[in-house]
């Protein structure tokens, strides 16, 4: 009796763990396959260019906030269908290695970090 109880408990634990891992994997895969908005920041001289590629909420993207470690965030509007947002002169005083964050602001007012990456400005 005790043995079958232990086996039942183990089976339940294994099944739960398997379900949890499967669920996590689906969530992970979904987040990979369907990002809200896929963006990429790059430096060009003193400018920073945010390229907008694709994503489930790309049509809802209203503004992008570019955040460079140690500097105040700069928000720019995203015109409908835009694939590139240029932040002119934003890196003119920036040197060394700094974290760069790109935050999306959507039409419903919600915000989401779209990208965080370390940049070597010089």
């Amino acid at each position: 009796m005790a043995i079958s109880l232990v086996i039942t408990v183990i089976l339940i634990l294994v099944a739960s763990l398997g379900g949890l891992l499967f669920g996590a994997s689906i969530i992970f895969d979904q987040s990979l396959n369907d990002p809200d908005v896929l963006v990429h920041p790059a430096i060009s001289g003193n400018d920073m260019i945010i390229t907008i590629y694709e994503g489930g909420r790309v049509t809802e993207l209203a503004q992008i906030s570019l955040e460079i470690e140690g500097y105040a965030p700069v928000v720019q509007n995203v015109p409908g269908g835009a694939t590139e947002i240029v932040y002119v002169g934003i890196a003119s005083q920036v040197t060394g290695t700094r974290a760069v964050g790109v935050r999306g602001i959507f039409t419903d007012g919600s915000m989401k970090i779209l990208k965080i990456i370390d940049f070597k400005f010089t």
Binding site: I43, S44, G45, N46, D47, G89, A91, S92, T95, K120, F121, T122
Partner: peptide, 23 residues
Amino acid sequence: TNQLGMTNSLGMSIAREVISLAQ
């Protein structure tokens, strides 16, 4: 003059590259 913002037709800032290499 400050050369960080000076880019070539490939979008490369020679000054940023030079500084990165020196460092």
